[in-house]
Design a protein around this nucleic acid. Structure first.
Lengths: 135, 135
DNA sequence: CTTGACTCCGTACCAAGGTACGGACGTTAT
DNA sequence: ATAACGTCCGTACCTTGGTACGGAGTCAAG
């Protein structure tokens, strides 16, 4: 268990692709690590946790941009719990909105499939008729 | 009310951008219309309905690729109502799946915000702790 | 017949979140 | 010391659904 990790080792331990590491660095989600004289990156073990933080944030529906914000909050000494909570509440509102949109779509689709026997020629298909009808 | 439409007129009547028309043509959603000798496109009025068909399909959550499939179904003389219904049912399943995923996310976020008083320093913030915790 | 508006085309660009490539080095095990 | 593998970098590519640009050509109204 080395104390310093090469890019590939970090990628492996965090369960992501090597290219993803460099991508996160470019996006400012992962700070630029020190380099050897050869230019090769040397990551502290902590970086593994940072990448996992990012992955968990993604699982919770945060974008990389938002995760960057959370990471910055985390470092800011002024941050209190409330600021973080605020972000999570916004994200909940966001998710609820998406769910509502999808439910509208589901309802509309169901209305169409319910009105469609499945038999009969396509000319009378309520679904196509709906898509074709003039507003 | 001209019988044949120029690209800009079609775009205007269908409520989309001129570039969108050309984009749909490239994607095979809009058949290539006849041209004048100058190369300018001349659309039949029917094209307005076709573009509206596409827009309504989008509202129902179909991708452009899927809409292309629906348009092809519509032309196929073998198509019966059932084939169209099938597509709609698949899309419903699709939408339900997305909703379920979002609900999981919502639940997880709510659990975190519920456990977070909003007071206290960030070091104890259950949300950050969750994001940081080792698996 | 001129002028301004429209159209043509290929191409580049945007968000988001990466993945892949290739040539030049660096590292490591044997 | 050499082979095999890792890493470096910039850049291109992928998806989806378009939008924007620029130079050249065309159309229609005055």
């Amino acid at each position: 268990m080395p104390a310093l990790l090469k890019t590939g080792e970090l990628a492996h331990e965090a369960g992501v692709n090597v290219e993803t590491i460099r991508f996160y660095e470019r996006k400012g989600l992962l700070p630029e690590p020190p380099r050897r004289s050869s230019g090769h990156r040397e990551y502290p073990r902590e970086s593994v946790r940072r990448i996992r933080f990012i992955q968990r944030g993604k699982e919770l529906g945060f974008t990389l941009h938002e995760i960057k914000g959370l990471l910055e909050l985390r470092v800011d000494p002024e941050t209190n719990c409330d600021a973080v909570r605020e972000r999570a509440l916004e994200k909940i509102a966001d998710v609820k909105h998406k769910i509502a949109d999808l439910r509208k779509i589901e309802k509309a689709l169901r209305k169409l499939t319910d009105s469609c026997s499945g038999n009969g020629p396509k000319d009378d298909c309520p679904i196509l008729v709906h898509l074709e009808k003039n507003l």
